[in-house]
Every structure is written in C-alpha cells, then in structure tokens.
Nucleic acid binder design. Sequence first.
DNA 1: TGTGCTGACCGTAACGGTTCAGAACCAATT
DNA 2: AATTGGTTCTGAACCGTTACGGTCAGCACA
Lengths: 362, 362
Amino acid sequence: MHARRPATLASLAAELGVSRTTVSNAYNRPDQLSPELRRRVLETARRLGYPGPDPVARSLRTRKAGAVGLLLTENLSYAFRDPAAIGFLEGLALACEGAGQGLHLVPVNPEREDVAAVHSAGVDGFVVYSVPDDDPHLAAVLSRPVPTVVCDQPRVDGVDLVGIDDHAAIAQLAGRLITLGHRNVGVLCMRLARDRNDGFASVARQRTAHFHVQRARLAALADSFAAAGVDWERVPVVERFDHSSAMGESAAAQLLDANPEVTALICTSDILALGALAEAKRRGLRVPHDLTVTGFDGIVEAERVGLTTIRQPVLEKGRAAGKLLLGAADHSRPRHITLDTELVLGTTSAPPRTTEQPWFGP
Amino acid sequence: MHARRPATLASLAAELGVSRTTVSNAYNRPDQLSPELRRRVLETARRLGYPGPDPVARSLRTRKAGAVGLLLTENLSYAFRDPAAIGFLEGLALACEGAGQGLHLVPVNPEREDVAAVHSAGVDGFVVYSVPDDDPHLAAVLSRPVPTVVCDQPRVDGVDLVGIDDHAAIAQLAGRLITLGHRNVGVLCMRLARDRNDGFASVARQRTAHFHVQRARLAALADSFAAAGVDWERVPVVERFDHSSAMGESAAAQLLDANPEVTALICTSDILALGALAEAKRRGLRVPHDLTVTGFDGIVEAERVGLTTIRQPVLEKGRAAGKLLLGAADHSRPRHITLDTELVLGTTSAPPRTTEQPWFGP
DNA sequence: TGTGCTGACCGTAACGGTTCAGAACCAATT
DNA sequence: AATTGGTTCTGAACCGTTACGGTCAGCACA
C-alpha cells in the first residue's frame, strides 16, 4: 500500500496506531514495551518493507556517526598502494573494529584545495595521517567540532598526537654511515611541500619543508653530517612528488648523474630505496661495494632484500592513533605518544669504495 | 558569547539578522546572495567558530551521504592484510575518488551476527565483497533502500554483480594438471561456511558451501577430475577458516600426513599456496619435482616465487564494482560484469614423480 | 483506603539543515 | 502607467529519528 514513498518510522507508527516512540523503542530498547507489541511492530515493519531506523536521522539525533574519518595527503587509493600506509591502516582498523566503529576514508586530491569532502564526512572523529603543516584539509578537520588525532605531524595545539622521533632515528643511521667512512652522500626524499618539485631541493626548501617528517629527517641528516665535517650545502638532495619505486629510480638516476662521487644514497623511505637499488643495478653498481643504499620504514619488501633501514612500528602507530581517538574519555589535555624505532643493519651498507677517485674527470 | 553550545546555522542567522536560508546559500549557492552579504556571513561564522553546515543534518535533508559502504566477510583489518583484498580495495578506492565519494568500511565480526553496524552506516550504496550466501550482514544490506553491488557472489535478484568465471578459470588449471599426468591430487581451500571447520571437508560440505567462490572452484575441480577418471570422493580437501599463509602451511601438513601419495596440491588461493610451499620446503619436498603446487589470484608475492596460478584482475574488479555503483543512472535492471582471468604457468607445476610408488607401505 | 511502585506507552521538542514558492525591490522595456 | 525581468532575501515545510519528561492502569502492601 505504501508503495511510493518508502516506509518511515512515523508511517509505521500510524499504521499500527501507536506512537513513534514505541516503534523506536521496538528497535532500540526492547525492554520498554511488551514482547507482544514488539512482535507486531517488527512484523508490520516487514510487511511494509520498513528497513529499520534511518541511520542518518539517528546520527543527527544521537550525535554519533559510528565511524572515524581518516584523512591522508594522498589520493584515496594510495592508502592501499603504499605498504607503510597499509600497515598504519591495518592498525587503525584493528582499533576501530575493537570499538565497533567504522572507518571512513575521506577522498581528497593532494593537488586540489577542495575541502568539501572533509566537511561532508559524517564521522565522530578524525585521524590525520602525515599531511603538510599548511594543508587546507587539515585546517578543515580542525575546524570540525570532533576529536582529532594526528600522526607524523608536528604538535598542533590541543590535538592528540602519535609519532616517532624522526630526528633521533635517522641520526642513528647517519652516525652509522659516518662511522663506516661515508662523506660523499646523497639524499632521496619524498615530497617536501604541496607544490610539485621533482628535482634537487635547496637547503632553504629543506628547512621550510611543509611535511614534518621529511623536514625532521633532513634536519637530522644535516646536523649529523655537519658535525662530521661535511658541508651540507654541497650534499645533493633530490625530491620526488609522487611516492613510488619508479620515482626512487628516477631520483637516484638524477642524483648519480650529477654527483657520481656519491658513495651512499640515503633515502627517506624504503620505497624510494627500493627504486634506488633498481637504478644501481641498472648501472652495474654493486651494492654495497660500489654504493651504499639505506631506507626508512622497515616494510617487508625492504626486509626481503636486506635493506639497511630504520624500522618503525607502523601497525602499532595506527592502533595507537585509533585507541587514542576512541578510548579516550579524557580529552581535556592533549596526549602525545612517541613510539620506538630500530636501526636494521642489512646488506646494503658497507664502507665506501677505497679506490682513488671517481672514474669521471676533475 | 556562544561559548557553550557550538554555533549552528540558525544561531548564525539570528546573530546576523538574516534568514537561515540565506546562511545556507552563503555556503551552498554563492550566486544566490550579494557578495557583500556573503562576506559578512562567512566572517561572522569565523568569529563565532561555526564550522559550516553539519554534514549529518545535510545528509538527512539531501538524502546523500557522500560515501559508499564496503561490507566484507572478515574483520575490518583483514582488508589491509590480504593482498587480494587490498587490490580490490585499491580499485574501489580509485572509483570512489574519481567520483568524490568516501569509502566507509563497515566493521563486522565474521563469527557474530551483529548487523547493527550495517544498519548504522550512513552511505549511499554498498559494495559487498565475497560474503557467504546466507550471511545476515548481506541480508541487512539488501534490506537497506540503497543500491548495492556484490562481488564474487552468486546472483542475487535485482542486484548488480561483478565477478569472474571461477568455474572456467580453475577448470583450465585442472586441465593442465591432468595433461601433466596428475591423478593423485589434494585441495586446500578457504572457509566454506560460517561455522568453523579446520580440517577435511566432505563432498557434501563442498557441495553446500556457503561461499560461492569456493563452491564454484571445488565443483569445477570435481567435474574436471571426474571427467579424467578420478574418483572425487577419494580426493582429500582440507579447509581452513582463517585465511593466512600459516593456515596454508598447517593445511598442507594435515593433507600430506594423511595422503602422502598426493602429487599435486591445488590451493584455492595464492596465500594458501604460499603456505603450502613453505610446508613442502620444511618437509624436504622439492617443488615441482616431488610436489606440484598451484594457487589462485595472481598476487605479486606469488608471481615473485613463480607460482602456477590463475591471475584475476582484482584491482579491475574493485574499480568495476565502484563504477557500477556510482556511475549508474539506470538501476532498472541489474547488470552483471564478468572479468577475464588468465592461467599463469609458473615453476611450481610439473609432471608427477615417475618413481614407482610412495615410500610408505600399504 | 491510601500509598508507592512498576510496566507500558505517549506527546512534544529538538537535532541542524535544505528547498521551494514567493515577496520586495529596482531597472528597463513597452 | 503598466509590464517584464532579474536579483536578493524570506517563511514555512520537511528530512526521519530519539531524548526527555511525562501519564495511566494495575497491583502489592500496610
């Protein structure tokens, strides 16, 4: 009979001659009405094709959406492409499923400033994963009146935070390379700002990088090598906007073309390092004899090839973020969690070649 | 002043002395009011800390949530653990980001019947990925008045569908093994029903499996080998509830312990096959000389070790599902998409050992 | 007989927006 | 002077539900 408009709680109540409250209770508080009436309500619902209380209307009334939003810098699909992101999300998903919360991935485009998607996500809180400091999407999230946890970001006033000590972690790695004798190093890093710059990154650009993680790692490298007598101004740093192994390859090629004297390639991610290894192979450079390559993250693909890298607990990071967001009764003062990292000495690092000098001229 | 209750569109309108409509228009239809007034509205909003129209209230009125829901059989975190699932999700995410839609992962527990999460997901449609035919969560999804696309499922009346021809695909593989001379085969398969059964699966259980994909693959194997004169009743089929490489290992061990005469292990997923390979290695069985192992899916890890398998376009499957759900103006009649598969001949399949008989006596 | 309690149900007021049909005003055309 | 058209803004209805604070009948108990 109610074929046209789909049935609503109100229409069901009218049909039954009871109040809307009662129908609502039939679904949400079975103890508030007699079993007999409840049976009738549910049966009539089936007959009328009423699918149960509308989730959106319920959310509006109860002020709960039952989901946490995830914002990341990249395209949505990147979440399923980068092993580190996947690990992070697995951890976050673990926390969510434990709390019966859904996970709402917010679609953004890193090259656009369209924050509408952030404004239209019906969620109870946000996890923000490694976006640039000045990202308009981050600002949009912070403007929303819901709790937020940021990851791999600098502190934001009044916001919970999960991360690692990027500076200390990579300083440890740098120390190792210095001990081995490397002085001619080159760096491959990820996107430093929201504008696309596939090429060398000046020291100024490094210092003002909008991505906290990259900035911290580069600063630590600069500090470490400067302390070892290396003039950081002369250290080539090549940046890539997109994060993929192919980009690591091309970045390594660009760097080695311009600086053949380099004996160690320090990459700020394992993905880039894997690309660098591929490029080294293509050039006939033996790793680690001719060239040392290091990464960062500790993804399984890196472990498989014995990459020297920093292992960070990506899964645990995601889980910690989720727990912070969900478990937290006390949101009075922001909490900061710093997780441990570990230097993994693989087979891609060794002392520099001891031959006289590079093959190419003066 | 409005410190306690957060500002709403109405309070903003009151503050400005304009109608709610006008404030709404300031956000949604800038051309409907003078630039000057719009500026004032936005500025006052900033001053009052109004974060813009509430997404849930908007969704209620517009009947759009801006997100698609994903339902899968497993725990939420499984989506980030299984390479095939990850590929599927990457494809789905690509379709979503193209349409500016979010992706809402619905948290369910495969061992519980709690469908509340399905009922409380504020989404514009659902993609259902490989759940059992009688899954209550699937029923809950179908009861919701939103478009739905199912993947790797049998046809459901009036619902769009994306999948592959599981029967034909694995029949091709079976044909190959038969040509090679294998007659003593064993099968490792994934969960067949919602109840946990880690062990041998009877033919009856195989036939009544609740998971379409597994059922189709087993049926195809039974057909193929029966046609080659093999008594399928005697073919050992070992099932595992959880899907992991470790389960593949233990399943292979269980099967080989009971049936040492087996010359080929056919696995209904690459993950299980990788486990089987590990178990074979542990036992000192040389693959493919002593034992043939095959998989299904064509994940990169399998490719790396040269597994003989069926490659299916998981990413494309996800993308197709997303496009079907989002692009579709015409929902009048359900559409079915069947994607192509490809037999990948790796280095894990060969003719059976030609020695007389197994080492162990009768 | 009065009192208090419990179970079962109801009325009203939000929740925070969007939408649509006009109203009011002004300038330009007939 | 009347008509037309365009811009800018408004009032009221509506989206579908749940929270809150009741009412009311029936029953046990002193």
